[in-house]
């Protein structure tokens, strides 16, 4: 079946979707939607966790001291250019199918975003505020925790949102090397020309990404300390 055989637009799309969601395999067993969403969220979460652990403390520190900020921006720009599909396939060839092979590329995707967000967030703290905090006798540690980090929280969360959405979207690609998740529908369907499965899977990824976007939009709205919310309005 080539490109010509799959035209027809909305009628087909509807029948594909009802075929996909009507299949009993989608409700039970290892290929069920719940199971696939679980896998997808599990390795996305794991990658985000590692990226947070590696990038945020470093970013906060670099942002606070103001050192190497230009280097951070340049490096993360270069990291953005790395093609994830290439990293995933290479990691599998080098490390074998397994957790490391998905985690490394996904962490490489998320960490630079978080590093820049943490660094820029802290660096953008109002200098008057920092001076005042030092002036009333706060130690550097206290200034970082009580002034700079609350100030940087919205930027950090915005970075986390970008990273989370990118990781969830890219985890789809990871299924190409046989690692489960929602991408299995997309990739498996492409391989067997089962477009109902491919399109159904794609729709689920889109829904998951949009849900993540909305969740973080709510978080960002309520995470900003009340005093800052008033100050910035």
């Amino acid at each position: 079946m080539g490109a010509a055989g799959i035209g027809g637009g909305t009628v087909n799309l509807y029948s594909w979707l009802s075929q996909f969601f009507g299949d009993p395999d989608r409700r039970h067993g290892p290929d069920s939607i719940v199971h696939r969403v679980g896998e997808h969220l599990l390795f996305s979460g794991e990658a985000l966790g590692w990226a947070l652990l590696l990038a945020v403390p470093l970013g906060l520190l670099l942002g606070y001291t103001g050192k190497a900020a230009g280097l951070v921006t340049a490096l993360s720009g270069a990291a953005r250019a790395l093609p994830t599909l290439g990293l995933v396939t290479l990691a599998v060839l080098l490390a074998g199918v397994g957790d490391t092979a998905v985690l490394v590329p996904l962490v490489a995707l998320a960490a630079p975003v978080l590093l820049v967000a943490a660094c820029e967030g802290v660096r953008s703290t109002d200098p008057d505020l920092r001076d005042a905090a030092r002036g009333i006798g706060l130690t550097h540690r206290q200034v970082l925790w009580q002034v700079c980090i609350p100030w940087a929280l919205p930027a950090l969360l915005a970075g986390l949102r970008t990273a989370a959405v990118q990781v969830i979207a890219t985890a789809t690609v990871a299924s190409y090397v046989g690692l489960g998740g929602l991408g299995s529908y997309v990739v498996g369907g492409l391989a067997t020309r089962d477009f109902a499965q491919t399109i159904g899977g794609a729709l689920l990824v889109v829904l998951l990404a949009v849900a993540t976007q909305l969740l973080f939009a709510l978080l960002i709205r309520y995470a900003l300390p009340a005093g800052l919310r008033r100050a910035r309005d």
Binding site: A169, T172, F195
Partner: peptide, 17 residues
């Protein structure tokens, strides 16, 4: 925020493989 692979796939019926 839409995943590229997912969008490519959804477009196939309209723009071709």
């Amino acid at each position: 925020a839409l995943p590229a692979l997912a969008v490519f796939v959804v477009l196939i019926p309209y723009t071709g493989l």
